[in-house]
Simulated scan of single mutants.
Amino acid sequence: MIDYISNMLKGALMGAANVIPGVSGGTMALLTGIFEKLINTIKSFDTKAIKLGCTFKFKELFEHIDIKFLSAIGIGVVASILSVARLLEYLFESHALYVWSFFFGLILASVYFVGLRIGKRSGSVVALFILGTAVAAALAFLEPAEQNASIPYLLICGAVAMCSMILPGLSGSYVLLLMGNYQLVMIDAINNFDFKVLIPVGIGAVGGLVVFARLLSWIFKKFHDQTIALLTGFIFGSLAILWPWKTPDIKTFQDGDAIKEKVVGYFYQLPELNAETGIAIAIMLAGIVIIALVETMAGKLKTT
């Protein structure tokens, strides 16, 4: 029971992270020590699982796919997304600087702790870290696409965003932002339970996840240190997206009879020396401390 609750909390961390543009649920999975198990468990949805399901051997099926682990993670993720989405809608409107500062601290600390998992440093490890950093940082300067509610595009959004969500350092929410559908999916559809949007996104997410997990599991086993280095680079590069002191570049556009606004980028600045900056830095340090505590607790659980 304790393990189940622990996994639910880890799932909740993943869900909360996935709602924030620039933060990855995969980073939380890696930090809490469940990343490889999660990937291998998702990979278990194979032909054997289909055969067991078709022959109604549900006990063997649940053991094969580790339903206890997956259900705990799934409950945590879904509950967190449904609750955090509403909270963040308010926080981003009222205290955007402090929200960005908190998550900047979380991800900054994550770079250090994830990097510790690299066993042997080599030329390829360093090169992949630099590549990962460059790719993730470049995302900060791409202009988002237009919103598109067509079913084929929602399927693609679900698949791409879910693959990004499980990759540490690549934010599924930010990918949705770049694809033009963050507001539609993560805010409007979730808060209003719009199943016309959520169902195709969910189908795309499940399909993309099952296929991608098999590829990622193979890469992890074959090139462990290189994969960790690339993922650490992704996390480090994502700091460009999360820099707290920025103002959104907002463009208005016509959508039928309505005029809507869309964030197409950011103007970055250096912080001013004032009380607000002091509070933001304190919140950033709190994010660093939280990750350090999460990592320490995860290490203790591994040794018990």
Rank of each mutant, 00 (worst) to 15 (best):
A12Y: 03
A213M: 06
I228P: 00
S24E: 02
N192F: 12
I288N: 08
I291V: 15
G76H: 01
G105V: 03
F253Q: 10
T55S: 15
M186Y: 03
I118E: 03
L61R: 06
S24T: 05
Q254T: 15
I42S: 01
L176F: 03
L9H: 08
K196V: 14
K222E: 10
L131Y: 07
L231A: 07
I203K: 03
P248G: 06
A240C: 13
I290S: 09
G158I: 02
R214F: 10
K246D: 08
A149D: 14
Y112F: 15
G53R: 04
L285F: 14
S124F: 12
I75M: 09
S80I: 02
K260I: 08
L242C: 05
F220C: 13
L216D: 03
I190W: 01
G74H: 07
L88I: 08
D3L: 13
G237Y: 01
K302D: 14
K37R: 13
A136C: 07
G180C: 06
L128E: 00
I190Y: 01
K302G: 13
L242G: 00
R214P: 07
I288Y: 09
V77F: 03
M297H: 14
I151Y: 03
S80F: 02
G287E: 07
V99N: 05
A109Y: 00
F223C: 12
I39G: 00
V77Y: 00
T133H: 06
G169T: 03
K48W: 11
F223K: 10
M179G: 04
F236R: 04
L273W: 15
A205K: 01
K43V: 09
D66H: 09
V263S: 07
T32Y: 02
G11E: 02
F62M: 11
E276D: 15
L215C: 14
A16D: 03
H224I: 11
G208Y: 02
I241L: 08
D257N: 13
L176Q: 02
V99W: 06
I187K: 09
S173P: 03
I281F: 12
S6H: 14
L167R: 01
Y112M: 11
I156G: 04
F113L: 09
I39C: 02
S24R: 00
F35C: 06
S150H: 07
L30W: 05
A12N: 05
D249H: 15
F253A: 11
F58S: 10
L108Y: 06
C157F: 04
L82S: 06
W218V: 15
G237W: 01
T41W: 05
V77H: 01
A280L: 08
F236W: 09
L270E: 13
P152N: 05
W243Y: 08
G26E: 00
I199C: 06
C54G: 15
V23K: 00
L106C: 08
A280T: 05
